[in-house]
Each structure stands twice: as C-alpha cells, then as structure tokens.
C-alpha cells in the first residue's frame, strides 16, 4: 500500500481554492470512482481494482480502527488519506499508520493535506494511540517534506530489503 504514497508531479499549482469550505469525512462507496480518477490524475496509473480493495478494507464501516477519509469541496473529492491503527508489528505498541495521502495537483498549497492529516491524527488520538508513522520512498521529496512540515521525524525503525535470487 506504500505505493499510494507516490510522489505527485513536482510542478506545484498555485492555490486554487480556499480550504475553509473543505469538508473532511469518511469515504463512502460512491466516492470510489472519484478516488480512482484522482489517483490516476496524480500517479498517471489507473488502479481501479486496487482502490476497490482498499475501500473494502478501510472504507466500509467496521469496528476496527481503520480510516479512509476524503476532503470534499463543492461536491468534488480534492484529496484523501488512508490509515489504521496497528499493534505489535515489529514489536511496536499500537500506533497509527498512514498508508496513503493524495491531493489534486490543482488544489495544492491550500492546506488540504494538512486538514486530512490533522483529521486522521484526531481519529488516531480517539483510539488512544500516541504515535503516528508512515513510510515512503526517500526520493519522494514532496511527500517527505509534507510529513516533515507536520513535525514528523525519523522513527526508531529502519526499513531493509533484499533482492530474492
């Protein structure tokens, strides 16, 4: 799912609309086509099956602490964020994980991602967790800078990988 944290085009559009009228809410099934289109606009790849599965896992109402939030403005989805609380992976106590965040390129620099991030952090706080984590490609400067600007710093884990031969 880390793939959803892809770097959008580096060209940033000027602020198009004010974030005041923005509404952050839980995603619903009817949002999925718009989410697929937004993801395609940002990444250049259409992944309808992937987003259907993500919605089934994170968007449908359930008791587990999974969150799929969208930012809606004037009836249009301008961005979304996906996260969940996970416990005891890698020996870590329960913490919030952010898996995906995207904002429409023409709506950037208007605070949409910050509002989505804050809303997800509030949701995490309500579950009682004290930490929020995410992971992304280290050359993804735009998203990395965004999370840094929210106060995130390197955590206690190091990601390692190898090529299977």
């Amino acid at each position: 799912m880390g793939g959803a944290l892809q770097g959008p085009p580096m060209k940033l559009a000027a602020t198009a609309e004010k974030s005041a009228a923005l509404h952050i809410r839980q995603a619903v099934r009817a949002d999925v086509p718009a989410l697929i289109a937004l993801d395609e606009e940002v990444t250049g790849l259409a992944k309808p099956k992937y987003w259907e599965e993500i919605f089934d896992r994170y968007g449908a109402p359930r008791r587990q602490p999974l969150f799929f939030l969208v930012a809606e403005q004037g009836g249009r989805i301008e961005g979304f964020i996906v996260g969940e609380v996970r416990a005891w992976e890698f020996g870590s106590p329960p913490c919030g994980w952010i898996f995906a965040i995207q904002v429409r390129p023409t709506t950037r620099l208007a605070g949409v991602a910050t509002q989505l991030y804050n809303a997800l952090c509030d949701a995490f706080r309500r579950t009682g967790v004290k930490k929020v984590r995410t992971m992304m490609a280290r050359n993804n400067q735009l998203i990395l800078s965004f999370f840094r600007s929210q106060g995130m710093m390197a955590g206690p884990f190091i990601e390692l990988e190898t090529t299977l031969e």
């Binding site: 280290r138 990395l144 800078s145 840094r148 600007s149 390197a154």
Partner: peptide
C-alpha cells in the same frame, strides 16, 4: 543517501516550526 534525503526534505519553514 539517507543524509541527502533528510536534508532535501526539511525546509526552512519546517526548521522554524521545530
């Protein structure tokens, strides 16, 4: 690579917040 990614991702604004 880690050092470069860190310096590249931290803006002056982020430093002021810190």
């Amino acid at each position: 690579e880690h050092v470069l990614a860190t310096f590249r991702s931290i803006t002056v604004s982020t430093m002021l917040k810190l």
